[in-house]
Write a protein that binds this DNA or RNA. Structure first.
Lengths: 233, 233
DNA sequence: CGGCAAATTGAACAGAGTCAAAACCAGTGG
DNA sequence: CCACTGGTTTTGACTCTGTTCAATTTGCCG
């Protein structure tokens, strides 16, 4: 369904994906289920919950490099990389479908257009990475935090898990800080300011947006990098 | 040659790539040759020179999100994205080969293994983006600058354009700042410190490394994210 | 020699980090 | 039903890394 939002997928292609799905697995919250260098034989299709990619530093610091929402083929890039240079962790309890790499080889060879759609979806991850680089490199803590809330609102809205004014986002402020390249103390102060300015509230694992237009203006959020429009075959 | 460093490419596959190459073009330095939203019909194989991807902010600030070295299929991701969300600019005079997307469709359908190798190369860009996120989010200005010098040393060494102790890197300090999410003034001070510590010197468009081991230690540089080892077919 | 972009330096300032304490809150067991 | 626990959030005071602004120097090129 999510792929169809951006590309025309034939019934045969959709069925090929369904057939490729192996085991369905549940993970608890806060579980690192892929470590760097671990050899991988399947990719993870996220059905329910939130997860993230992150890298550790030797002093215990951590940088989350992307958040995944339901519908994301979370580690499809492991199909070509064979092992990852980073870790993957659940942020909430998750339900995932495992898709063996051998099946991916089979269906991408049988359906070249589907191969390009999947390839596109890993390129979309790179688009998100680039936008985060801009946030981390150039936006202030406030703008950056606002931007993250805008991104998640948009991405969750696609899968009907966010309205214009609110969505579930059960991270701790420490995890938020690990996304934003800030300390949890500073994140707390920024959240206070966003709240006092009447833009967003982050509380009890929910984001409540009071003024989406203004929030986007503050964040300088332009959803172009999420490639929402439908693309030609 | 560069693809062969990481994957076994058959002669037929190599020939298919050669055949796919269209026009060879020269660009001057500091030319933005791809703007966001521009519809693209070919991808750019960088033969000579350095180029980068960057995003602009409304206040004139700019974040460079990746640097490309000779041998990189610099905007292969435009094959699946159709248009980019960012710009591409030359940092030096460049020679490039244009590869029409129609040709890419043809050769990836004819050679599925080659398709995966090309797919891999766009995933490698994402790996580099993630490492930059870590730098921008968690490393100090000094570590971050050291890390960039390590990355370029490694990537240029693959194409025999860098030794262990020096390589050409003709950027201005302002451009360096745009990579590092810093101001040019601060970059200047960081370069001074790196020089005084006897680690690296950046001068006259060259990087001279006096102590690579120590530089890597300071930067906490682990080349794993560049996937240098050869991978199974 | 002149012109100009790039590099360098200094001084003052601000955004974000550090450290430490306090308040809050959900879940647990008595 | 309530006290206890541990993790999370909140706040204050202080520090420091990196920015800003402005001036000066350097180096290249015609």
């Amino acid at each position: 369904m999510k792929l169809r939002a951006r590309d025309d997928i034939t019934d045969a292609e959709a069925e090929a994906i369904s057939d490729a799905i192996g085991e369905i697995v549940e993970y608890a919250s806060d579980v690192t289920f892929i470590a760097p260098k671990q050899e991988l034989t399947h990719s993870t299709l996220l059905l329910e919950g939130l997860m993230c990619r992150y890298k550790d530093l030797s002093d215990g610091q951590r940088q989350i490099t992307e958040i995944h929402v339901p519908g994301d083929f979370a580690d499809l890039h492991s199909f070509t990389l064979k092992h990852l240079d980073h870790s993957m962790m659940t942020l909430t309890p998750c339900t995932i479908a495992k898709v063996p790499h051998t099946e991916l080889t089979r269906i991408t060879e049988a359906y070249p257009h589907l191969a390009r759609v999947l390839w596109f979806s890993t390129n979309l991850d790179a688009c998100i990475h680039r936008e985060w680089e801009v946030s981390l490199g150039r936006r202030s803590a406030l703008e950056r935090t606002a931007h993250l809330f805008c991104e998640l609102q948009q991405r969750l809205a696609i899968v009907e898990m966010a309205s214009e004014s609110d969505y579930a986002f059960p991270l701790t402020q420490t995890e938020l800080a690990e996304c934003l390249g800030l300390t949890s103390v500073h994140v707390n102060r920024v959240l206070k300011e966003l709240r006092e300015r009447g833009l967003v509230e982050f509380r009890g694992g929910r984001v409540t947006i009071h003024d989406l237009r203004e929030l986007r203006r503050v964040a300088e959020f332009d959803p172009a990098y999420l490639y929402l429009e439908k693309r030609a075959r």
